[in-house]
Amino acid sequence: MTVTATLTELVGDAPEFLRGHWNRGPARFRADLPELITEREILDTVACGLLSWPYVTVVRDGVPARRDEVTVTRRVLNVTVPGFVHRRTVVEEFRGGATIELAHAEHWQPRIRAVVEGLAPAFGAEVAAAVRLTPAGAVEPAAHTGRAHAFVLQLAGETEWTAAGDPPLVPRPGEVLYLPHGRPRTATATGGTSLRVAITVEEPDTADIVAVLARTLVRRLQASEEAKLHHRLPAERKADWVRDEVARCCAELDLAAVLDAAVERRTSRS
């Protein structure tokens, strides 16, 4: 099955969404969502035992299980390899009320990868996907931490999202809930087992951009003729040289390239 998803397919009028909703407040949209993943597929994936930490874990009351609680060590080609999911433990935790979380599903699930790749061009940011399968009635404090924007694709069941001072939001199957960054929210599975895919959009922060600029400047300084003689320069002359190079570097910057590098840096840190 071929799966595609663009911002327009999720929210309708993409320019209107960016003008009226992006970074402003939550919004719900009806979308023709493809069958990205099912509860049966998740349980079968866990049962096969090939996924490893941190791609799969369980979360109870908002607290992820420790690695040693849900994984085992195996011998693979005569090499000891830790981190394989402990199938029985994960399933028992789920039946006992814990959420199964599949992180960075775009790395290994082709249909979800297609959605992430379809959305990425709309944003200068890291775009990633996480799948959550939550038993009915289970509560997940800070299910949305507020660090990133999120498009929550509700595939089955219902999830009630709450934040202090805001009315609850309850997307139903086939709906997309947009949650802007900066506001933690609690999720409660209602209407049976809740299955959702959260597409997160995490923009570079100031530290990412400054790090890229600093790296660019250092490379520029190292390539200059003055760098070969900097140890002979008096401190005042050296300060003048660096100041002038900083000014020239900033004036000549390709801002699009800087943002691309900042996104790459953020992605490598996640």
Results as ranks from 00 to 15, higher is better:
G182C: 06
V152S: 11
A187T: 06
A164W: 02
P135F: 13
V170N: 01
L195I: 10
S194K: 00
G137W: 11
T193C: 11
P180K: 10
Q154R: 05
A156Q: 13
H181L: 13
P180R: 05
L177C: 09
D166W: 07
T206N: 03
E175A: 04
R183L: 15
G157I: 08
Y178I: 04
D208Y: 04
R196V: 11
A148T: 10
P171R: 04
A136L: 12
A189C: 10
A150Q: 11
L179S: 09
R183K: 15
G191E: 03
T188E: 12
L179R: 08
H144Q: 06
H144N: 06
T188L: 05
T145E: 12
A189F: 07
A164Y: 01
G157Y: 08
A138N: 07
A142D: 14
T206M: 07
G192Y: 06
E203T: 15
R185A: 15
T200C: 03
T134I: 14
A150G: 07
V131P: 04
G192Q: 10
A138R: 03
G191K: 04
T193Q: 11
L177A: 08
T193A: 15
E160A: 11
A198N: 13
E203H: 15
A156G: 05
R172D: 01
T193W: 08
L179K: 07
G191N: 05
T188W: 02
L155W: 04
G137D: 11
